[in-house]
Computed example of a mutant assay.
Amino acid sequence: MESFSSFFDSQTASRNSWSYDSLKNFRQISPRVQTHLKQVYLSLCCALVASAGGAYLHILWNIGGLLTTFATLGCMAWLLATPPYEEQKRVSLLMASALFQGASIGPLIELAIDFEPSVLVSTFMGTAIAFACFSGAAMLARRREYLYLGGLLSSGVSILFWLHFASSIFGGSVAMFQFELYFGLLVFVGYMVVDTQEIIERARLGDLDYVKHALTLFSDFVAVFVRILIIMLKNSAEREEKKKKRRG
Rank of each mutant, 00 (worst) to 15 (best):
S51T: 12
A103Y: 07
L37V: 02
L108S: 13
P117I: 03
H36T: 15
L37T: 05
T35S: 04
F115Q: 09
S14R: 08
L217Q: 00
A203D: 10
L229E: 06
A223L: 08
S51P: 08
A132V: 10
T127Y: 15
E198H: 11
S51C: 06
G54C: 13
Y20M: 10
I231A: 03
R227E: 09
D209H: 05
Q11R: 04
N235W: 10
L79H: 07
V222I: 15
L205P: 04
A214L: 02
L152F: 13
S97I: 02
E240D: 15
G171H: 09
T216M: 06
K212T: 15
E241C: 07
Y41H: 15
S118G: 11
F165Y: 05
F8R: 03
L181A: 03
F179D: 13
D195G: 12
L208I: 13
L111I: 14
S19I: 12
V174W: 08
S167T: 13
L229I: 10
L153K: 08
K244E: 05
L93N: 08
S219R: 02
S118A: 04
V91W: 11
Y210P: 15
G64A: 00
M232V: 14
C46H: 14
V157W: 08
F8Y: 09
L152P: 00
K244C: 05
R247S: 03
V91F: 12
T35H: 03
F4K: 04
W18K: 04
S104I: 06
L208N: 08
E110C: 11
K244D: 14
S122P: 03
A128I: 02
S43R: 07
Q34T: 11
I109M: 02
A98M: 01
Y146M: 02
Y146G: 00
F170T: 03
T123M: 04
P31Q: 00
R27H: 02
K24E: 00
K242L: 10
L67N: 13
Q178N: 04
V189Y: 07
M76H: 06
L163S: 14
F218W: 13
S155Y: 14
S168E: 09
D209G: 08
S17P: 00
L57P: 14
E238D: 13
R247P: 05
A81Y: 13
R239Y: 07
V222S: 12
Y182D: 10
L233H: 07
Y210T: 02
E240S: 14
N25I: 00
G126N: 01
S92R: 10
F177P: 10
R32W: 03
I169A: 12
R90Y: 10
S22C: 09
V187W: 01
T127K: 07
G248H: 04
M176I: 11
E198L: 06
F100V: 02
V189A: 11
G106I: 09
I129S: 06
E180H: 09
F7L: 07
I59Q: 15
G184V: 04
S104G: 06
G190I: 03
V226H: 14
I113H: 15
T69R: 00
F100S: 00
F188D: 05
S155V: 08
